[in-house]
Design a protein around this nucleic acid. Structure first.
Lengths: 215, 215
DNA sequence: GTGTAACCTGAGCATATACTCGGAAATACT
DNA sequence: AGTATTTCCGAGTATATGCTCAGGTTACAC
């Protein structure tokens, strides 16, 4: 077997593209590989993912896969980065809307609902990425998403006029991001469907809005 | 290669023990295998885990491994169940202490601190288990831990005399478990060490205690 | 002691997966 | 049309890992 088995840390070169596609044909092939990767992850999990499977599902030859990617992890990384970026840009977009609303609570609810809805599409794929892909949380896009979430909440914080100590704000900010992330993750990936997501998001929005004005 | 590659769901038989060790010698062997499994997971990650590696590190022959386990997943499952049970029993123990204290806030802080400390040992191993083992959240012990956490918080809820609607309580309970879990997970597994865990746990205890009395 | 059951061994076979490479086919350029 | 470049192919090789099995060793009961 090749390299890359038996290590806990990954080199960035594992995730880089080998060659940039230049013609429309090859761009379509690369896209097909990434899509195939998603489908294989959904149906067989990360352990069942192989370059051969990707090539087969994508309808291209195994040689073509290695023409553009150094290995399967690069394809997974590209797929994950795309999905994470979707959430990040959603957050950025909704942030503009949030600014114009003066009702903090409903603005928060709006944001949470949007992110929740986006996560629910691709539920299965997301589950595999989060629970099985070893290097997901080391990806740049993951950290970018964390930063973006903090940014959104920070803006909410700055809107409130209350003055608290800086450390208190920092801690609250941290708690909010981890709480929101933890709740959304569990709600989307783990909780049974009988869980009344709308009611829970209502409650979460309430609590978070309250934390914002408290400090 | 054997079976068990390429599936998203696992059979319980994958996690069962093949034969129960009866003499002290074999019990030591089985224990060595589980410990070796932990060490291999820490140093090479789940992708680098193999029955051969386990046997080598444990100092037993590969044949002995298959004498007692149907495959590596059974060993991982046993290891994980042990660690999860440690947290569960800790929670149960501290719950008794919590009852006797009337200061809800400090009781909460005590609990959080204890769980955090326990998680911090075996940080690396925990990281691998949580982020890489595909079937971790399907293990009975995982769900048991969730239930136990809810139980502890529920007891806190019942201690407060306030009467709110049942659905509000249910939602708050859910939010508390997911928030606490999310924050602890991030703090232990992801956050950089410069994060001032004590201060954050203080803040979290404050917030959670407040939610308890609010409803 | 002797017999039985539990325990251990490790070479070896089967298989899955990573990855290469020589060359064919399509496309772009002039 | 002719040439260069890009793209694609897929049989084939190397290797890691799963797992078996025939036979040896140790512990225990009587």
């Amino acid at each position: 077997m090749g390299r890359c088995m038996g290590q806990v840390r990954w080199k960035v070169s594992d995730f880089a593209v080998k060659k940039e596609p230049k013609q429309a044909r090859s761009r379509a092939s690369v896209d097909a590989m990434v899509q195939a990767c998603a489908r294989v992850l959904e149906s067989r999990g990360y352990a069942g993912l192989s370059t051969n499977a990707i090539a087969e599902v994508a309808g291209v030859s195994i040689g073509s896969v290695y023409e553009y990617f150094p290995g399967k992890d690069a394809i997974v990384a590209r797929l994950a980065e795309g999905m994470l970026r979707d959430v990040t840009t959603l957050l950025q977009g909704r942030l503009a809307l949030t600014d114009s609303r003066n009702d903090l609570n409903s603005a928060m609810r709006y944001l949470l609902g949007a992110v929740y809805a986006l996560m629910c599409k691709n539920r299965t794929l997301l589950r595999v990425l989060v629970f099985q892909v070893p290097y997901l949380h080391q990806l740049p896009a993951t950290k970018q998403l964390e930063i973006e979430l903090q940014q959104v909440l920070m803006t909410g914080l700055q809107h409130t006029r209350q003055q608290y100590s800086l450390s208190a704000r920092q801690h609250t900010l941290y708690l909010m991001t981890t709480s929101v992330a933890g709740t959304l993750m569990h709600l989307v990936l783990v909780a049974p469907p009988a869980m009344d997501p709308d009611g829970i998001l209502d409650a979460l929005a309430d609590k978070m809005a309250a934390w914002l004005v408290e400090g």
